[in-house]
Simulated assay, not measured.
Amino acid sequence: MTTEQLQKIGFSLWCDFVQRDFLDHAFGALLSQGGGLLNGATSNPSIFATALQSPHYAQQKASLHGLDSKSIYEHLAFSDIAKAADMLAPLHQADARHGFVSIEIDPFLCDDAPRSIDEGVRIFKTLNKPNVMIKVPATQAGYEVMNALLARSIPVNATLIFSPAQTKSCMEAFALARRDSLAQAVVSIFVSRIDRAYGSTTLGIANAKECYACVQSFEDPNSRALFASTGVKGGDLPPTYYIDSLLLPNAINTAPLDALKAFLEKLRTGDCESVQPTCTELNHTIDYDKLLDEGLMAFKQSFHTMLESL
C-alpha cells in the first residue's frame, strides 16, 4: 500500500514517544518524512519515567527546586506536551481529527472518578491547547471519567484496553457524551502485550481486530480505534509487524520509534504490504482482568519511580 492509499482509507500513524531532545531535533523531520500519514503523538508514565532522567531536563529541574515531586513532574512533562502540541498544531488546524498529543492522568487515581475528572480538566486547562488528549485508563471508574471529560469537549484517549467488553464500555461512555460534544476520542487497544503474555504472534492481532470491529459498529465519526503496544520485543518478527498486520480503515497505530521509522522507510521504497496472519487461537483464553491489572501496576510503578527520582 502507498501513503496515498492509506490516507484514503483514513489510516494514521502516531509516534509513541515524547522526550525533549527528540522534540527539539528529530520530531519535526520525522513529521515531514511521514508525508501527512504521521500526524500525532502519545506519552505514558513509562515513557516519562525514562525521559525525565535525561540530562536535557537538568536545568529546568534545578529551577524547580523546593516544589513537591508531582509538581516538578508536571512542569517538566507539560513543557514537553505543550511543545509537541505546538509542533502538531498545523496538522490539527488543517483537519480536526489529526495533530493530537496525549498525556495521562495520574495512574494512582484510576479508581477515583471525581479526582480523575478534576485532574483531567485541570491538565487540559493548564496546557490550554485544543489538540491535547487526556488519557484515561479503561477501568470502571474510567468510563465515568471519559464521559465527563468528553462532555466538556475535552479530547479523550481511553487507554489500557485489552478486551471487546472494555471497548464496548468506552464507546458507550463516548456515546452518552455525544449529546453535548463532538470532541475527538480514541480507544487505545493493546496488542503485543497479549502475544507476549501468551507466547503467540497472532492472538493479540485477532483480539485487536475484534475490538476494532466494536468501535466501527458504533459509527461514531469522531471516535477511532488506536492500536497501541505495537512494539516487537524479541523473536524473529520485523519491527513493523504490528503495523503491517493492522492497516485498517479509520484506525490509528501509535508505534515506538524503531517501528515507525522502519515503516516509513518501507513506504518510501514502495515495499509496504498489508500482512494478514491467520489466528486459530480462541480469544476466550485471554485473562483480560489480569492483563489490565498488570498494565495498571506497570504504569503506577513507573510513575512512583519517576516521582521518587525527582
Rank of each mutant, 00 (worst) to 15 (best):
E210H: 10
A26W: 01
A255W: 00
E294M: 09
Q60T: 14
F78C: 12
L52F: 02
I123T: 11
L310T: 02
F190W: 09
G235L: 14
D80A: 09
T305C: 02
L127R: 01
D236E: 15
G231M: 10
Y143T: 08
I105L: 06
E144W: 02
K83T: 13
I103Q: 04
S223T: 15
S63W: 04
V191Q: 04
C272I: 03
A49H: 04
N131A: 01
R20T: 09
K266G: 00
T50L: 10
R224L: 12
L292A: 02
D24A: 12
A151G: 11
L247G: 05
D112N: 15
E4N: 10
A298L: 11
A85H: 07
S200T: 14
A225N: 08
A173R: 06
Q93T: 14
T285D: 11
H92Q: 10
L248T: 01
W14V: 09
E104H: 08
R179I: 12
E210R: 09
S153I: 03
A213M: 12
I252S: 05
L267N: 00
L291H: 08
H75A: 14
L76Y: 03
V145G: 05
N39R: 11
L149Q: 06
A175S: 15
T126A: 15
E281K: 09
L257E: 01
S169L: 15
T159R: 07
F78I: 10
R122S: 13
R179C: 05
N131M: 03
A113L: 05
D86K: 13
T126S: 13
M146F: 05
A185R: 06
T126K: 13
L6F: 00
S302N: 11
N222P: 02
F218S: 01
F27Q: 00
V136D: 01
P55S: 09
L149R: 00
W14L: 04
R152M: 13
A158V: 08
I103R: 02
A259C: 06
Y241T: 12
A175E: 15
S102C: 12
E294H: 11
M146A: 15
L64Y: 01
A85Y: 03
G199E: 14
L37T: 00
L91T: 00
E265Y: 08
L292I: 08
V145F: 05
F108A: 14
V232C: 10
G295I: 00
I189E: 04
P164F: 07
L267M: 04
K209C: 04
I81T: 04
L37Q: 01
H56K: 13
R196W: 01
L13Q: 05
P114Q: 10
P239I: 02
Q5F: 01
E4R: 12
A62G: 03
D293Y: 06
E74P: 03
L67H: 10
I243D: 06
F174G: 09
P249E: 02
F263V: 00
I47V: 15
P137K: 08
A77Q: 12
L149E: 05
F17P: 02
S153A: 14
A62R: 09
A113N: 09
L282R: 14
Q184E: 12
I243G: 03
P256Y: 11
I47S: 03
T42M: 11
L307H: 05
A208S: 12
E281Y: 06
A228R: 03
A138K: 03
C272M: 11
R97T: 12
L226K: 08
